[in-house]
């Protein structure tokens, strides 16, 4: 597990910055909830009347006055965008950074199989995403206690699970793409991460575009649906699992045959 440990060490500063930045925004959102709560009924009504805009962000079906409803929209956006971008970034760089940094020749001239390098890098990506989420869960827990809300544990865990899986899927798809690249591709990673996010917004807007939810990893992170059903949407999860596996398989297959130069 030398490569795994090395990857974690190399990524620790970025992980700390992303985890704390997202955690801070998350914490701030939760801490302002008590002062927003009284106004939330009106806000909820207002959002409900904003038609397409509210639908795009899934705010038409949510009770803003309740903490889970508030959390799923406000914090969901922070976790969705922040976590999604972080996952996209580490996913796209996982394999390609060795070549863009000219370290691939050094690394792969050691007696470690390509398959093992890919597996350890993938594990490191997943571990970093898991750490980011654990930090955010801890910050959420502390802030929920501070504002004196009774923590809606099941709802929060479902939301966190959805965002974790979305990040895993995003990272896996970009991990597969990473095997094609010879440069770091940070721009491509963030671009695709943003595209996934906006595809979900478009999917929310109209019936005709709803199929996009099968494509974007954000398809099963719809807070309103999760809170209403008390579960993640199985069909979108299944589609996500397929994309996740395809990304991982592409990473393994391509990198094992790739010319390193």
């Amino acid at each position: 597990m030398t490569v795994f440990r090395h990857e974690l060490r190399q990524g620790r500063v970025a992980l700390a910055i992303w985890a704390l930045s997202i955690g801070m925004m998350l914490g701030m959102c939760i801490l302002i909830y008590p002062s927003m709560k009284s106004q939330m009924d009106q806000v909820g009504e207002m959002f409900a009347q904003m038609g397409g805009f509210s639908r795009a962000f899934g705010m038409d079906k949510i009770n803003f006055g309740s903490f889970p409803g508030f959390f799923s929209v406000e914090c969901g956006n922070v976790l969705g965008l922040g976590g999604g971008f972080y996952a996209a970034l580490i996913g796209i760089q996982a394999l390609a950074k060795e070549e863009s940094g000219h370290t691939a020749e050094f690394l792969l001239a050691h007696p470690v199989s390509r398959g093992s390098v890919v597996a350890q890098k993938l594990l490191a990506v997943l571990a970093q995403i898991a750490i980011l989420n654990l930090v955010n869960i801890a910050i959420t827990a502390v802030c929920v206690v501070i504002i004196g809300e009774k923590p809606p544990i099941k709802s929060l865990l479902l939301l966190f699970t959805a965002y974790f899986l979305m990040q895993v899927e995003t990272a896996s798809i970009l991990f597969g793409i990473s095997a094609f690249l010879r440069t770091g591709g940070a721009g491509l990673g963030l671009g695709l991460g943003a595209m996934f996010y906006f595809l979900n917004i478009v999917a929310n807007l109209m019936e005709e575009t709803a199929f996009l939810k099968y494509i974007t990893p954000y398809g099963y992170t719809d807070g309103a649906q999760i809170l209403t059903d008390g579960a993640l949407c199985g069909k979108y999860l299944a589609a996500g699992a397929v994309f996740t596996l395809l990304g991982i398989a592409a990473g393994f297959l391509l990198y094992r045959r790739k010319d390193i130069g």
Binding site: Q10, V13, G101, H102, T103, F106, A109, P111, V112, S113
Partner: peptide, 21 residues
């Protein structure tokens, strides 16, 4: 047998780039 072979080799690339930090 790439692993078995690489175990017996010491390689110096022409461009020696390493991990920063």
């Amino acid at each position: 047998d790439p692993i078995g072979i690489l175990r017996q080799i010491g390689y110096l690339p022409s461009e020696t780039a390493f991990y920063n930090g």
